[in-house]
Write a protein that binds this DNA or RNA. Sequence first.
DNA 1: CGCGAGATTGATGGTAATCAACGAACGTGG
DNA 2: CCACGTTCGTTGATTACCATCAATCTCGCG
Lengths: 231, 231
Amino acid sequence: MKTEDVDAVRQLPLFQDARKETFAKIMRGVLLQRFPPGVTLITESDTADFLHVVVDGLVEMFATHGGRETTLSLVRPVGTFILAAVLTDQVYLQSARTVLKSRLLMIPAAHVRAAMGTDEGFTRAVVAELARGYRCTIKEVKNQKLRSGAERLANWLLQESARSGAGAAVELDVEKRKLAALLGMTPENLSRAFSTLRDYGVTSVGPAIRIGEPEALAAFARPNPLIDGPE
Amino acid sequence: MKTEDVDAVRQLPLFQDARKETFAKIMRGVLLQRFPPGVTLITESDTADFLHVVVDGLVEMFATHGGRETTLSLVRPVGTFILAAVLTDQVYLQSARTVLKSRLLMIPAAHVRAAMGTDEGFTRAVVAELARGYRCTIKEVKNQKLRSGAERLANWLLQESARSGAGAAVELDVEKRKLAALLGMTPENLSRAFSTLRDYGVTSVGPAIRIGEPEALAAFARPNPLIDGPE
DNA sequence: CGCGAGATTGATGGTAATCAACGAACGTGG
DNA sequence: CCACGTTCGTTGATTACCATCAATCTCGCG
C-alpha cells in the first residue's frame, strides 16, 4: 500500500483520533483494493470478516427475501459499512455491491475489535460512527412509514441537491431503478412520481434533474430534520 | 433508591461488566421512577438528557410527522432506549410513552459519556447494546420493504409466540391499534390481516390469539432469521 | 444498422388507506 | 343494578396508491 494512501486513510474520521500504535496495528493485514462496477463485495448471512471503508466510488447496500430485492442505502466516500456486524462478530444482514468503480479499504474484523478498548480515541470514533448509522436507519424507517412515494422522492431530491452542492441541477449517479428501490417503490412508480413532481417544477432529461421551483417542491415535500437530515 | 434495586440494576447487561467505581459514579444522580400507563417520557426533537432503561413494564417508541403517528418499537424489560442520541449528544428522533405501569431507570447522559473511555467493560457493553439496536432497526426496514402487511403480522405472531414462550396461545399486551402501527398498517387493515390468517389456523378472541396450525402459518409467513430474529 | 438494457407509458388488478357505520366491552354516575 | 357514554374493534363501501404486465421508446454500443 502506498504511503499517500496510508496518509489518506489516517485522515478518515474513524482513525483521526486513534493513537499511532493502534493505527499501525490495524493497518497490518489491511487491504486497499479497487473494484469495477457491479461487483458483489459481501453477501447477507456471511460472517463478518472485514470492516469496509469506501475510500472512493459508490457502494450499494441491499437485501433480498423471497425473490425480492431492495436497496437499503448508498455508501459514498468516506463511509463505512457493516460496522455493527463486525463489532458483535455476527453475520451480515445486508449485501453490498459496487455501483461505480470503487476503492475499498478492508480491515480484518479481529483487528477492529482488538483495537477497541485499548484506544479511547478510536473507540469514541467507532461509537460515533455506529450511532450515526443507527440514527440514519431510524430516519429511514420513519421515512418509509410516514410518507408516500412521491414525498420520499421529493425529499430525496432536496437532500441530494444540498449534499452535492449542485443547487437546482441534480445529476443522478445511480440508475433510476436503484433509486426506485432505495425509495421503496418500483421503477414504474418512480417514473410516475417524477411526473407528479412536474407540477412542482421538477423536470428531468435522462439522469439530469432540474428543481425549477425549490420553494414549491419543499412545500410539497415538507422536509423534516428528524427524518431527512444527513446526520 | 433501595439496595435491592441497586443490585438489580447492577445485574443489567449494560452494567454487569462495569467496574465498581464506574457503576458507583453512574449511580450518583440516577433516578429509578415509576410511571402509570400512557405517560409521555420523552419527545422527539428534545435534547438527550437521560439514558432510559426499562426495568419493568412496557414502553412504546413512536414518531410523528405531518399529523401522522407511527409506532417504531416496543421496549420490554430489560431494554434501553435512545442510547444513540445520548452518546452523540443529539436530539431524540423518537418519542416514548409508557404502555403499562412501568419502572424506569434514568441515567444522566453526561454520566454515560463520562464513563465511556474510562471503563473498558462498560464501553463494550454500550457498543454491544448500540450494535444490537442498530441491527434490529435494519431488520425493521427490511421487514417493511420486503413483506406485505399480512406477512408482517404472521411473522410477528410467530416471533411473539417464541418470545413469550406461550406456544400456540399468544396474549397481546398492547392494543391492536398499536400493533397495527408497529406493523405499519391501519387498525382496519390489521383486522383484515387477521381474517386472512384465519385460513392458516389463526383465531382470536379479543386479545387472546391462538395459532392453530403453526406449520401452515410458518409456510405463509416464511420467517427469515435475517429479518425476524430477536437479535 | 440492429441489438439490448433501461426508462417510460398505458392498462389492469391488488393492496392498503379512508370514511362511515355498527357492535362489544368497560367505567361512570345515577 | 342499570342507563349511558366512551373507547376500541370490526365490517362494509369507496377511493387512492402501488405493483404487475405489456408495449413502446430512447440511447449507447457493437
